[in-house]
Design a protein around this nucleic acid. Sequence first.
DNA 1: CGCGTCACTCATGAA
DNA 2: GAGTGACGCG
Length: 644
Amino acid sequence: MHESSQFLQNEFHALNPEQLQAVHHKTGPALVLAGAGSGKTRVVASRIGALIADGVPPESIVGVTFTNKAAGEMKERVERFVGKNVLISTFHSLGALILRQTIDRLGYSRNFVIYDTEDTEKLLKALMKELFGGMAPFEVKEARAFITEAKNGLSRLADSDLDRLYTLYMERLKAFNALDFDDLLFLPVTLFASHPDILASFQAKWTHLLVDEYQDTNMAQYTLTRHLVEKSKNLFVVGDPDQSIYSWRGANIQNILNFERDYPGAAVFRLEQNYRSTETILSAANAVIQNNARRYEKNLWSTSIEGEKISIYGGASEGDEAQFVAKTVEHLHSNENIPLDEMVIFYRTNFQSRSFEDALIRKKIPYTIIGGLSFYQRKEIKDILSFLRLLEHPQDFISFLRVINTPKRGFGEQFLSKIIAIAKKSGRSVLELFTTCEEPPCHLSPKQKEGWLDFARIMKRLEEIKASQTLPELVRAAITETGYLSVIDADPETRQDRRENLSELIAKAAEWEEVHSQSSLAAFLEEITLATSTDYMDSSSSRLSLMTVHNGKGLEFQVVFLVGMEEDLFPHINSKDSEDKIEEERRLFYVGLTRAKRRLFISSVSYRHLWGGARHMRPSRFLFEIPFELRKRISHPPSLDGMH
DNA sequence: CGCGTCACTCATGAA
DNA sequence: GAGTGACGCG
């Protein structure tokens, strides 16, 4: 008997009969239809514990979650139950893990670099210029959207121009030894389909697969999963069709709805008891989601207290709305002792955060914005990381483009096309020309000549430091040895901020090296690129969180503010052309509502600054779907209730 | 030929 | 309010 078995006993004891059944499901496929707040994460963690207690080797279990944060928490939980380390990650990280061991079979090298959306768009833009000159038949963003759709949906492109671009794009990524986000799912599927021996080895290694948030899997994820469990059939998925909110990145709600058809003999468990929210909040959420036509019927219930009515606030402008929220937060914090990190502001689009920031700064309420432009997407961070990426991947042309003229070395478009041609002829990468040529291979102006020597010297120096020093030292060198500080100091407005961000980057590298015993630059870069926005939620300092409803998935708070509930914003204007999209917006609203444990404030305004001008706004149709008896109109924060 | 400025367009969600 | 392209200067 394990010494942790008492812990496990206690953990199981707290489960209700339905949860217990799911946890102790024997073998074969299983589907857990779990409503919001029904303890599904706990079921997955407990099941992993139960599998291990039953004698399944921990290294043959794989858990897939939607964010790295959820993965980390679940890992910790399992470790607490049974004292074993289990592989739990997101689909993208799992794809990277598979490819780091096998991608050479597809002609890439194992230390590939991962391109984010910005890198991808830069490459596509260059290729479109190459292919179509100034007359591309579509925009860069459109092209990227189509390519993403094709990869995630495992489908072909219909348009021949797009098809040419796609082919060239894949060729070029391979030449740069780079993968885009979608490749992390798409290439494992390709690999499994074409290399049965590799598939067989993973099937033998991973015999138990558990997937959380299954309603948001796309075709590539579905197929990857299917491949992995083909032999063992031990697939345990958990999800809620009512919370499917990612169709725009290829998620297919049919994956969960057709589970029983796709996996014959699947056991189905339903978790309908909600442990999170008050009766009022739950009834409102149930009533709202009833308006969706095609769904798996379910009814969440709880034994919780009735709770307060849902407060509806209507303001004149976004400034009003922000002030109302800030005042209410202040009141709840100081008069009702609700910690700031137990409250959240949810909005539909990232740009809405601005007015709230203003109001919170004025009231000196500490806050963090989750999502939007993340730390690692900032220009100065990406510039420095590009120097590092280039050390690891000399063929990475996109990173080369980023840093070759930073700071300005007099290298423009003409120079670049010349140097690319020379590199092509000599069969070397552009970077190699710099590091191996004694003399520049073409005519250069004095400034360019100096720049040439300077850049060559920088790369050699960084190379030495990489070989001899620690990771944080290397990051520091990429900032100081490259002349980057002069770039930053040129703008007194942003100087301070950017210097702080760069210090932060050095600190993150130091932190990373402490946690990971062997310091691999490639692994550090990978983790940074695959981080999810909620990964950066800091639980050590109590701050109010601001985020989009999409980012709120899987989280819960005592108090939720759902703001900007207006037609064309939520539901978003781009969703108006089809009933399916409106239903997805409604599910998103449902996700927002069900994050709240005790209190819910919903607000809308009549005028909002959008697209440069003031626009009249009408309250969202979703507001009227909340039963009248569950809501109350308020015009002031709770502290001022008695004044009118 | 490179670089800075200015007018102009455009605006969901994210690993 | 940010990113991009055209344009004219050095």
